[in-house]
Every structure is written in structure tokens, then in C-alpha cells.
């Protein structure tokens, strides 16, 4: 019951739909969705935003964000977003992609969208595993990490090294903003929120390609509790995938926070 002494301090963002999500308990996909919804609200862009969903656990992101959405083939979201953005340059177009989607099957598409400096925003969710298909090794699986296809732990001699996408993409002239964040605690969630907002602002300023890599948990396929999963992000993932700003182009410094 809200009376004159109470005020609402936490609620659904307007761009969020009020439905029960399909994510596992403790999964941080939902946190990242919320940050996008808050950003869309704050920038007042809900009615001109078109999202592109990936194939992965977040395939149904369009059930949770109240914007137009297209569902891409696995890994092709950056190509699809290119087609939408080139057709409707005054709309805001973003992709939301997992690590298998972006850094394995869709590597060519993300690298070339970045190389072209496509004026799109990419939210890249790195949970070091294939969530949707139940826990296979991902391009970002840590060395030694056990998955269903690296049952003895990822052996870098046989299975190669994890890809560091925020660093890799930061090398490209078409990229204006490439950062890595995490959502394992409130402080980092706030920093992630700020980065997501920056990334959308880059697009609104026609300043080129922007990407936020977000380290995210998958308690289900890491076989740990939600609390232990957040600890894993902090203690295991961040050392390999350091948080930080890998590229903040001079051209965007005046408006990113």
C-alpha cells in the first residue's frame, strides 16, 4: 500500500514487459536485460529501437523488452542488424549475443560489422559456456574449465585458447567503444549500466560501432549455486577477462560518462 509517506524506488522499467522469465534461477542474463531496458527508458528511445536476438539462452529476449525485435540465425545478428540499420539509419539497432553466437559461429559477422564501423550497439554476454545446448565448451571457456565437451578441463594444447573479444575488437578503426564489464555485484552492475548507456549514446551520435562485453553467470551449466557462480565470475573469469575500457575513441569522449 503506497501512501504519501512512501515512494516507489524500484520498479519495472517501462521498456520491460511484466512476465515471468524463462531463465534459470541465479542467471544474470535477466540483470543485463534490465539494464538495457533502463537505458532505453532513460534515453527515451523505446519507440525507435529495433533489437536483434541471438540463438542461445537469450533467444527469447524479445519477450522481455518492449521494443520491435528480429530473431537472427545463430551468429548472424550483426549481419541482420547491418541490414536493418542500413535500411533505417535513424532507428536505434542493437544486437544481444552470447559467446557461442558472437565469438564462434558468428565471428566473421561481428568482426566485419566492426570493421565497417556499422553504427550499431552490441551487448555481448560472455558466460564462458554454451548455455542453451546444456554446457558445451565455448570459445570463451577458461583454460582447465570442465564442460560437457571438455570433460577433463579445457586443454589449450588440444582445444585452443579463449577469445578475448573486447580486446580484439578494440583494435579496429571502425570501433568507437569497446569495454568489458561484469554483473557479479551491485557496483559492477552499476558500471555495466553506465557502459550500456554509453554504447547506445555512441550510436545516437552516429559515432560508429559500440560493444559492451558483459561477464555473466551460468550456474546451471557450471554446476554451482547462484552465489558460487557470482564468485566464479569474480575469482576465475575476471583474471582471464580483465574488466576495463579497451577503446573509447577520442570522437566520443565528449559524451560518454
Amino acid at each position: 500500500m503506497i501512501n504519501e509517506h512512501m515512494q516507489v524506488v524500484f520498479d519495472y522499467p517501462d521498456s520491460f514487459t511484466e512476465v515471468v522469465s524463462h531463465y534459470c534461477p541465479g542467471c544474470t542474463h535477466g540483470v543485463i536485460h534490465r539494464l538495457i531496458a533502463e537505458t532505453i527508458d532513460e534515453l527515451g528511445i523505446r519507440e525507435k529501437t529495433i533489437g536483434v536476438a541471438p540463438v542461445g539462452c537469450s533467444v527469447f529476449i524479445y519477450n522481455y523488452l518492449d521494443t520491435d525485435f528480429a530473431e537472427a540465425a545463430h551468429g548472424r545478428a550483426p549481419a541482420m542488424a547491418t541490414g536493418i540499420k542500413r535500411s533505417l539509419p535513424d532507428r536505434v539497432v542493437f544486437t544481444y549475443q552470447g559467446d557461442g553466437d558472437l565469438a564462434a559461429i558468428g565471428t566473421a559477422e561481428i568482426v566485419h560489422a566492426a570493421a565497417r564501423g556499422e553504427n550499431i550497439t552490441v551487448i555481448f554476454v560472455n558466460n564462458a559456456i554454451y548455455g542453451m545446448t546444456s554446457g558445451q565448451m565455448a570459445p570463451t571457456t577458461l583454460p582447465g574449465m570442465v564442460t560437457t565437451t571438455s570433460p577433463n578441463g579445457r586443454d589449450v594444447e588440444l582445444q585452443g585458447f579463449p577469445l578475448k573479444m573486447a580486446e580484439l575488437l578494440s583494435q579496429m578503426p571502425g570501433v568507437s567503444y569497446s569495454v568489458r564489464r561484469s554483473v557479479h555485484d551491485p557496483g559492477n552492475i552499476n558500471r555495466t549500466k553506465k557502459a550500456i548507456k554509453n554504447a547506445f549514446q555512441v550510436q545516437l551520435n552516429q559515432a560508429g560501432f559500440s560493444i559492451v562485453e558483459v561477464l555473466s553467470s551460468c550456474p546451471t551449466n557450471w554446476n554451482v549455486t547462484p552465489a558460487a557462480a557470482l564468485k566464479f565470475v569474480k575469482e576465475q573469469m575476471i583474471p582471464y577477462f580483465p574488466l576495463g575500457d579497451y577503446k573509447v575513441a577520442d570522437s566520443i569522449k565528449s559524451f560518454v560518462g
Binding site: I50, V52, A70, A72, A73, R76, A79, M80, A81, T82, G83, I84, K85, R86, S87, L88, R91, A108, E109, V111, H112, R116
Partner: peptide, 24 residues
Amino acid sequence: RAFVQAESELAAINMVYGAACAGV
């Protein structure tokens, strides 16, 4: 009008897919 030389036919058709979704 929009013209993009894509990185592959795979990307090209998915760009077409996106543009078609945008109604052009």
C-alpha cells in the same frame, strides 16, 4: 539507397533478411 559488399554470402543473405524485416 543502401549497398553493402558483405564479407560472405552468408552475411549478405542475413543482411537482406534484416533489411526485409525493416520493410524495404
